[in-house]
């Protein structure tokens, strides 16, 4: 773990949607490795590197809240865009919100805080001037200054994530005494395998002393 980083992330709300309950969204109890990777990539990412989440510390008690919103059901169809492009006008190319309305509830997390422990690996896209030190420096510099590529979020974009780099040797932030220290969280999404037609891969998430050890991506414990 020589290139490891630790990032403290927190926010008022979060929604790490369970794939089996994604219509009326229900969040997992904790952040998924996939969402944690997304936060790191929002701060720094290049095709030359791949983030690997090693450990997730859960600092706050797991609490939920329900929010129901008006959403639209449909997606934009590329066929109708092509037609509009050909016709050279945007007339008629629109979604009428009140015709395509769905009311959906979301069960989201309240007041979350995590520490993400992660490192990165160089991919085969790495060129001669991509060194581990360079990318680590860029990440640390940005995280220290609060810089990011786009604002990182806790699962969905309406729940922004605040973050702070935990420097080497610096202690972890204090955990809430009422937080869950041990719990079997069941099968949880590890990440999506984009190389193989977006196959989701799952692992058995166990919270032990407030920490989830994330198994290696190609490990035995990860099933698709």
């Amino acid at each position: 773990m020589s290139y490891g980083i630790r990032l403290h992330v927190w926010g008022d709300r979060a929604c790490f949607t369970r794939p089996e309950m994604k219509v009326e969204r229900v969040s997992y109890d904790v952040i998924t490795p996939s969402a944690a990777r997304g936060i790191l990539e929002a701060i720094h990412w290049k095709p030359a590197i791949r983030w690997v989440v090693d450990r997730i510390h859960v600092l706050k008690p797991v609490r939920f809240e329900s929010i129901r919103r008006n959403e639209v059901g449909g997606k934009l169809s590329p066929g109708s865009v092509s037609r509009a492009m050909k016709a050279g006008t945007t007339a008629g190319l629109a979604t009428y919100v009140d015709e395509d309305r769905q009311q959906r509830a979301a069960t989201v997390l309240r007041d979350v805080a995590y520490v993400i422990e992660a490192h990165f690996e160089l991919t085969d896209k790495a060129g001669p001037d991509d060194s581990v030190g360079k990318h680590l420096d860029i990440f640390n510099r940005r995280a220290r200054k609060g810089q990011h590529f786009h604002a990182p979020c806790l699962g969905v974009r309406e729940f922004p994530a605040h973050f702070e780099l935990i420097e080497d040797g610096q202690p972890l932030p204090d955990a809430h005494p009422a937080r869950e220290a041990d719990k079997d969280l069941g099968w949880m999404l590890h990440d999506i395998d984009f190389a193989r037609d977006m196959t989701p891969r799952f692992f058995r998430a166990q919270l032990k002393a407030g920490v989830i050890d994330v198994p290696p991506w190609q490990g035995e414990e990860v099933k698709s």
Binding site: L93, A94, T95, V97, D98
Partner: peptide, 23 residues
């Protein structure tokens, strides 16, 4: 133009021709 429209503010007839790409 606005893609996600509410009917109440729909004003299609006022839409002008667009500088569309050559496709």
């Amino acid at each position: 133009a606005i893609y996600m429209q509410e009917k109440a503010v729909l004003n299609n007839q006022h839409k002008r021709a667009y500088d569309a790409l050559e496709i």
